[in-house]
């Protein structure tokens, strides 16, 4: 089942990517060929197989509840595009 242009637009929106109009046909074709490759998986019998999320299947380590961080705001915000009064600025958010 091939993706249509409108599907690609929806995915781009989901991923918050602004697609250049002129690139859409090429992007659609590329995504379809990649998904075509992915579709080859359907031929594999995986009945009763548990999915594997981590290669080593270890367990999560826990850290002690200790404050180890100090205020580094100035350094961290020196690389930010827009800050004011210690806040990161973005265009107005509407709830």
């Amino acid at each position: 089942m091939a993706l249509e242009r409108s599907d690609v637009e929806k995915i781009a929106h989901l991923a918050h990517l602004d697609l250049v109009e002129a690139d859409l046909p090429q992007t659609t074709a590329a995504l379809n060929s990649i998904l075509g490759l992915a579709d080859q998986m359907q031929a594999v019998n995986t009945d009763g197989i548990e999915p594997l999320a981590h290669p080593l299947e270890a367990n999560q380590r826990l850290r002690a509840d200790v404050v180890t961080e100090v205020n580094n705001r100035e350094a961290y915000q020196s690389i930010a595009p827009a800050v004011e009064n210690g806040l990161y600025l973005v265009p107005k958010v509407i709830d």
């Binding site: 991923a15 918050h16 990517l17 602004d18 992007t27 265009p91 958010v93």
Partner: peptide, 27 residues
């Protein structure tokens, strides 16, 4: 607006292959 900030920063900041893989992954 906010959505424009996200979409254009990412659309202009990432190259074509990165965008393709992000879209394949999101899908």
């Amino acid at each position: 607006d906010l959505t424009d900030l996200y979409k254009r920063s990412r659309g202009e900041g990432f190259g074509a292959e990165v965008q393709r893989r992000i879209m394949v992954g999101a899908y």
